[in-house]
């Protein structure tokens, strides 16, 4: 890719020397084209990042409308805040369980779909598993709230038919997070199934032919050919899934509101509540900064792990 950039540059330069007028035109084009775009990035991306960092050192509520500089007190308070510490724990628990189950489930389903020999059937299954992924997550969360309802929900109706005691899916501390995880997986596995099928498609047949000549069976093929060669797809899928689950918000805000006993109060919800329900924007910004640092570190670690395993 770098090569093509350099090639482009040199040919451009020789061309520019010849026609100064068009060079002037180009310069103006660059300025006029970039100005509005950079303005939008500036106002809605660069400025908020800087502002957020700054705000985390202030005690600020939009209601009182004046900010008091308090240094690192927000950060000091954060680490004594039991709710914040719990929300950190809940976030990692949610992301960990959901990402691992997501990858295992999607890998199995993608392999199963790939093994189907009839093309239209293959496409049908892919479509069916993908459908939930396109619906608005907020709508899905509401549908699942009624499914998990204690009195009239589908799950408890089924349990009743089987003569099993009904469960408080969304208000029992043992089940609440699990329920949200279930809903998230239902709504989200379609993406990774499609990506894994595409990844499997791009593995050349010759690897399998060579392995079969060496006497490999189906399991050998999966573990020693498919999995290692899916590494790139796997790295990409893991990183994007981890990042998107760290930011999961609608399902928590709609289904459990962080309850019971903060068992489902993930960081994303905690930041929102502090900023917009409690008008505690300085404190929420400090939380957001910690959130950013966590995401950066997690992404970096994954890139490192991914890279070292490629190079070997």
């Amino acid at each position: 890719m770098n090569k093509s950039i350099e090639a482009g540059n040199t040919s451009k330069r020789t061309f520019d020397k010849g026609t100064t007028r068009s060079y002037q035109n180009e310069k103006w084009f660059v300025r006029i084209a970039l100005a509005p775009i950079l303005l939008l990035f500036g106002v809605f991306a660069f400025l908020p990042i800087a502002w957020s960092l700054l705000l985390s050192f202030y005690d600020y509520s939009p209601l009182s409308n004046h900010a008091v500089f308090i240094g690192i007190r927000n950060y000091a308070l954060l680490f004594q805040d039991a709710v914040f510490l719990k929300s950190l724990w809940v976030t990692f628990k949610f992301v960990g369980i959901t990402v691992i189950s997501n990858i295992l489930i999607t890998l199995v389903i993608a392999s199963a779909i790939y093994a189907i020999r009839i093309q239209w059937l293959k496409n049908l299954f892919r479509t069916l598993f993908f459908l939930p992924a396109i619906a608005p997550l907020a709508g899905t969360a509401i549908v699942w709230t009624t499914i998990l309802n204690y009195d009239s929900g589908l799950f408890n109706v089924i349990l009743g038919q089987l003569h099993i005691a009904p469960v408080h899916w969304l208000s029992d501390p043992k089940y609440a997070l699990l329920s949200v995880i279930m809903m998230t997986l239902w709504a989200d596995i379609g993406y990774n199934i499609v990506l894994f099928i595409a990844g499997r498609d791009s593995i050349a047949d010759m690897y399998y032919e060579a392995a079969i000549l060496d006497g490999a069976n189906r399991w050998h093929l999966f573990f020693f050919v498919t999995l290692p060669l899916l590494r790139r797809t796997m790295l990409f899928v893991t990183i994007t899934t981890v990042i998107s689950y760290f930011q999961a918000f609608p399902q928590f805000q709609i289904m459990t509101k962080g309850e019971p006993f903060n068992e489902t109060r993930v960081l994303a919800l905690n930041i929102y509540d502090q900023a917009f329900s409690n008008s505690n924007m300085g404190y929420a910004s400090a939380m957001a900064t910690i959130f950013l640092i966590i995401i950066l570190i997690v992404t970096l670690i994954q890139f490192r792990l991914g890279r070292s395993s490629w190079e070997q």
């Binding site: 990035f41 660069f46 908020p48 990042i49 930011q247 994303a268 924007m281 910004s285 900064t289």
Partner: peptide
């Protein structure tokens, strides 16, 4: 080609890494 192209592009790319929850408060204030 123009001055500061590389750094500008890097800055724009970097915003991809920023979760929305991190910038939502200032974005709301703006």
């Amino acid at each position: 080609q123009f001055k500061g192209k590389r750094i500008l592009f890097m800055l724009i790319l970097a915003t991809m890494m920023i979760p929305f929850q991190v910038i939502m408060i200032p974005t709301y204030l703006i």
